[in-house]
Structure formats: structure tokens, C-alpha cells
């Protein structure tokens, strides 16, 4: 969140080394403009994406998570992104049951040549999440322990 009260989301990006990370590079070197909301983390392949990473990001304060990799059929490890498709589908259903809006966790493809597509995806997702507002997940469990509350009151 920026100081002047307008909400600027934090999106954690997991980008595969061979396609989407390079697409991000290309977007940068071509001086394409897109919102500075993405904190990208390079993974070797979307098949490396443990759903724990996504949950951890949300728990630690991210407003959204963007997973990007090579187009189906073009994974540099043959099937990594097919694994990602399966995990993502199941993760999406799980997160829906936990009350998370669908737009907050997304999976998209961008090849190393698709800097424009990368920039557009970040721009669109930023808009969607800005409309939803902050996630602030840890506020879902306010401290209810009277001992801890009393201690906090004395500090």
C-alpha cells in the first residue's frame, strides 16, 4: 500500500527460467511499461512450483500470486507445465473453499519472445487485484487469547 492511501497490490510472481522469466527480461529491455507490482521469483520450471510457495506468499502478505511458464507443449523439461496445470486446478478449488477470490492466484503462459504478453498479463492482474483490495490474510485470525491480549495491553 502506498502512503497516499491508494492501494498498490503486491503480487508475487513465480516465473519459469526458460520462457516467462525471459519474457519479463524482454519486457524490461524493450522498455515496455507495466505496473511495478510484481515481485518475481525465478523457478526452473512451473513443474517446480510447490503449492506451499503460493500459500506461503499469501500468508506472508501478498495480495496475489502469478505463476507463469512456457506454453503447453513447450516446457523445457517436457511435462513440467502439465504438472503445473494439474496442481493449479486443484489448488484453485482448494483456495476457493478457503474463501479466496479467483483472481488472486493465476496461471499464465508467455514464451521468451512474448514480452508484450507478459506486460499485459501483469497489467491486467494488477487491475483485477486493485479492484478487489488488499488481502491481508493474517487478519483472518485476530488474537483471541485473553492472556496474550492482557500482555499486549500492558506493553
Amino acid at each position: 500500500m502506498s502512503d497516499n492511501g491508494t492501494f498498490k497490490p503486491v503480487i508475487v510472481g513465480f516465473l519459469c527460467n526458460w520462457c516467462s522469466y525471459r519474457a519479463a527480461d524482454l519486457a524490461g529491455t524493450s522498455r515496455m511499461g507495466y505496473p511495478a507490482t510484481l515481485r518475481d521469483i525465478r523457478i526452473m520450471c512451473t513443474g517446480r512450483l510447490d503449492p506451499t510457495f503460493v500459500l506461503r506468499a499469501l500468508q506472508k502478505g501478498a495480495d496475489g500470486v502469478l505463476i507463469m511458464g512456457c506454453h503447453p507443449g513447450q516446457c523445457h523439461y517436457q511435462e513440467g507445465n502439465y504438472k503445473a496445470i494439474r496442481r493449479f486446478a486443484l489448488l484453485k478449488r482448494t483456495l476457493r473453499q478457503l474463501g479466496l477470490e479467483e483472481e488472486r492466484v493465476q496461471l499464465h503462459w508467455a514464451s521468451a519472445a512474448e514480452g508484450v504478453r507478459f506486460a499485459e498479463t501483469v497489467t491486467r492482474m494488477t487491475k483485477e487485484i486493485t479492484a478487489l483490495g488488499p488481502l491481508d490474510w493474517s487478519h483472518n485470525w485476530p488474537n483471541e487469547d485473553p492472556y496474550a491480549l492482557e500482555e499486549a495491553a500492558h506493553e
Binding site: 506451499t52 500459500l55 506461503r56 499469501l58 500468508q59 486443484l90 478449488r93 482448494t94 476457493r96 473453499q97 478457503l98 474463501g99 479466496l100 490474510w137 487478519h139 483472518n140 485470525w141
Partner: peptide
């Protein structure tokens, strides 16, 4: 109910701990 299967015994200990507050009833996936 995949979330129910995955978190049957360890939802409070999980990273997200619970469903978003104030969203009422459990929903089917």
C-alpha cells in the same frame, strides 16, 4: 470437497489456518 480432504486434520496448523473470516458457510469447491 478437496480442501476438506487435504486439511481434514491440520487446517488450524496450515499456512492459511482458516477460511477467510466472515465468509460464512463452508462452500463446495
Amino acid at each position: 470437497d478437496p480442501a476438506g480432504y487435504f486439511y481434514r486434520f491440520h487446517l488450524p496448523q496450515s499456512l492459511l489456518r482458516r477460511r477467510a473470516l466472515g465468509n460464512g458457510q463452508k462452500q463446495t469447491a
